[in-house]
Design a protein around this nucleic acid. Structure first.
Length: 352
DNA sequence: AAGATTTACAACCGCAGATTG
DNA sequence: CCAATCTGCGGTTGTAAATCT
């Protein structure tokens, strides 16, 4: 395979693009389309290689790109999809239509990965690090272990269904499926502990007077983990969201019903049996089901019971924020109900 | 105030699959 | 079928801006 010399050619400019270059590229593509990227630069009057032009266009100049802060929902989507897909940024980006893979990759590396590590969660495996279970409470450890076990089993079943239905539909989901099943050798998929609950617990927990200043209009704290975006968006998303428009709602409720089996009892037969049931019940092909959990409309799904004490209190983040907040001791049920409402908010919303 | 350090992100590099002749 | 080229992708780097000391 011959490789093109690209930017090694003498006389081609590298480095940051100037506004003039941007304008030339933009104008040319608007008038002619990009066509062959290699042929484009001379036609557009640019001293750049085609590859550089393509990257500039796809990552910056394209009109359908959303820039700026990532919303909490976007963060959740990235985290869940990363747990599912690993570093397949283009596949993840396909689920965030107005974000580029480059932007998501950068955001992961500079924000999300570090935050997960601070929370004691391994960003590659999405499992809690043992030392970060922190409080040393055996109950917490057991809970996390069980949750990971269940989550892993659930995702395996979902992934199988996805594979079986990969020819179906021409929607964005089939596009995602294609991206995740072709092109590159399959990467070992890390089991997805449902860290979003921990995530939200860590970032949205009401704070006491640790706020010391504001940065860009957001609260910031000293000595605490910070998530200005999360703080802002949580308050917006705390409005209870009805489970409308979730075509997989019934399926997921059934899913949760199996998750609702007595996890803490660690009954292998129950695990096996309920998993089989869940696969039989499954009638969905939509991989977004990985990132939406339908809450029981009556309140808190039973599977969360018994876990309400682990989320906000066991991470290093909680260690940094001090003693458990009374709100979470007294209102665990409403807390989790709110969490699920947030998580369950439709992804394909106007936010994107 | 100034230098050092950290953070954030645009851009580049090179590999690999897809396409083309 | 093969080789050349194109394109997409993920990893990495360079550097401006922000923050710290």
């Amino acid at each position: 395979m011959g490789r093109s010399p690209c930017c090694d050619k003498v006389g081609l400019k590298k480095g940051p693009w100037t506004p003039e270059e941007d304008q030339k590229l933009l104008t040319y593509i608007q008038e002619h389309g990009h066509g062959s990227w290699r042929a484009l630069p001379p036609k557009a009057g640019l001293q750049r290689c085609g590859k550089s032009c393509r990257l500039r266009w796809t990552n910056y100049l394209r009109p359908d790109i959303k820039r700026g802060k990532f919303s909490l929902q976007e963060e959740q989507t990235i985290i869940q999809l990363h747990a599912l897909l690993g570093n397949r940024w283009s596949a993840i980006a396909s689920h965030l239509p107005k974000r580029t893979d480059n932007e998501i990759k950068n955001y992961w590396n500079t924000h999300l990965k570090k935050r997960l590590m601070k929370m004691g969660i391994d960003p590659m495996t999405h499992k809690p690090k043992n030392h970060a279970l922190g409080s040393g409470q055996p109950k917490d450890t057991a809970n996390l272990s069980h949750m990971a076990q269940w989550e892993s089993a659930r995702l395996e079943a979902e992934a199988r269904i996805v594979r079986e239905n990969k020819l179906a539909s021409s929607s964005i989901y089939s596009k995602l499926l294609k991206a995740t099943t072709t092109a590159r050798p399959p990467q070992p998929r890390p089991p997805c502990l449902d860290i979003l609950k921990v995530w939200q617990g860590a970032w949205t927990k009401p704070r006491k007077d640790t706020t010391t200043k504001t940065v860009n209009g957001f609260f910031a704290t000293k000595g605490n983990l910070e998530s200005p975006t999360s703080i802002l968006n949580f308050s917006e998303n705390m409005v209870p969201t009805p489970n409308v428009g979730l075509i997989q709602e019934n399926s997921l409720v059934r899913d949760i019903s199996y998750l609702g089996n007595p996890i803490g009892k660690n009954n292998d037969d129950q695990v096996k049996g309920t998993m089989e049931n869940s696969v039989q019940f499954h009638d969905i092909i939509d991989p977004t089901s990985f990132i939406t959990y339908a809450a029981d409309s009556l309140g808190v799904p039973s599977f969360l019971e018994g876990y309400t004490d682990f989320a906000p209190n066991t991470s290093s983040a909680s260690a940094a924020t001090g003693p458990a907040d009374d709100v979470f001791e007294d209102n665990k049920i409403s807390y989790w109900s709110n969490i699920l409402n947030v998580v369950n908010s439709p992804i394909d919303s106007t936010v994107f």
